Computed example of a mutant assay.
Amino acid sequence: MNWDEKFASNIKAVPFSGIRKFFDLASTMKDVISLGVGEPDYSAPDKVIEACIESLKRKETSYTSNWGLLELRQEIAKLFHNRYHVDYDPKDEIMVTVGVSEAIGIIMTTLLNPGDEVLIPDPAYLAYPACVSIAGGKPVLVPTYEKDEFKLTVEELEKKITPRTKAVLIGYPNNPTGTVMDRDSLLKLAAFAEKHDLIVISDEIYCDLTYEGTHTCFASLPGMRERTLTMNGFSKSYAMTGLRIGYVCGPREALEEIYKVHQYEILCASTTSQYGAIAALRYCDDDVKAMYNEYAARREMVYEGLVKMGLPVFKPKGAFYIFPDISSTGMDDEEFADRLLTEAKVGVVPGTCFGPQGKNHVRISYAASRENLAEALKRMGTFVAKYRKQG
């Protein structure tokens, strides 16, 4: 059988993850410092682990409601009410998912007819366009520019709008650039969405890692709750990546249809992990703050190290990524990442994995120990100096 002829054309057109490519390659080499994967170098807080263990001891291993544990949804509702003054009914306006990754996929499956277009900032998380394509939609990349700190502008959005445009998918703080959108910038985006009657899908997984200013929940903007689907989760703030817990909040009429897809494809997120998430929201604010403070210190360390190397880079304002321009080495981002890995044993991700606007940049994750970051910067500095001198 020729399997290649049997696959759906839209799936075949989706590339494999460039992040995983470099991570997998680095894992086969000795003495590599990998700064490629966006995963906290912490374990989940003790209270989370204890809650997971206790739930297993109680033999709570059955399915939960397809919506997720009501107790967890109530805690999420409290969070949005207290922090953002946005109210969601935990009964049917909040759904627990298997991370934000599942949330993106089921939202696209629910919303998109073949050929429907979704506007996505470029560069942005590489799963965004992939999930749109897998659902049969058309990802439309909207360029952002380093001179603007890679902020999404209405001027660029207007150039890409068509009668087929259905939604805008954003994620701030941004992966891979570390940029944030201030409230005024988001208000302009809100006016654009209202003008063109678009759905806004907002990935706010890095909201707790905002170093300058405060995070603005898009649904909290005037008139935006009813047209916004907010995605968030526990992987980054609480170092719960492997526990795979996320959620989506939105208007009842939207969630009911998304729930239908989730019901058939997933049934429910891990029961054990849901109990861990309840503990995270109730008891782990101090853990989140401690991790935040450490990431903030690492941000300073890595930024200063890259500036010292002579690489142009703006100081990230959120998440745990930095996105330097490496064009002065005479290499493009793919060659730079390959050679840095093989010659200096440091793993980073080429910027073009996140869209064409990532050309000549690389993404560096500073979710690594200060010791490893110091050594990686030392190796990278020697590598950059060698090729900049030759250039």
Rank of each mutant, 00 (worst) to 15 (best):
E93D: 01
P15H: 03
P45G: 03
R339A: 10
L187K: 08
T272C: 12
L169I: 03
P163E: 06
A254Y: 13
Y42P: 00
E375Y: 10
L377T: 02
L152E: 04
G178F: 06
A8W: 14
E253S: 13
D92S: 11
Q74E: 14
K317A: 10
G99D: 09
E212P: 06
G305C: 05
E156Y: 10
I326P: 10
A385N: 12
N10S: 10
R20V: 01
Y84K: 02
A77I: 07
K91P: 02
G105K: 09
E257H: 11
C268F: 03
T382R: 11
M231D: 04
S17C: 12
N293V: 03
Q263S: 14
A385S: 14
G223R: 09
V140G: 02
P45T: 02
N66R: 06
L79R: 06
T228W: 02
E300C: 03
R363Q: 10
Y145P: 13
R227A: 01
S34V: 10
K317T: 14
V96N: 02
K12C: 03
M231G: 01
P324L: 06
P316M: 09
V362H: 05
A124M: 13
I205Q: 04
A191L: 11
E194Q: 13
L255M: 15
M95C: 14
V346M: 08
P312W: 15
V261K: 09
T342Q: 14
V96C: 00
C217N: 14
Y206V: 12
E117K: 08
A374F: 07
T329V: 05
A167D: 08
E304P: 06
L126P: 05
I53L: 08
N175M: 09
L72A: 00
K91Y: 13
D285E: 11
Q74Y: 07
Y366V: 07
N293T: 08
P356N: 13
I161P: 00
G391I: 11
V288Y: 00
E343G: 14
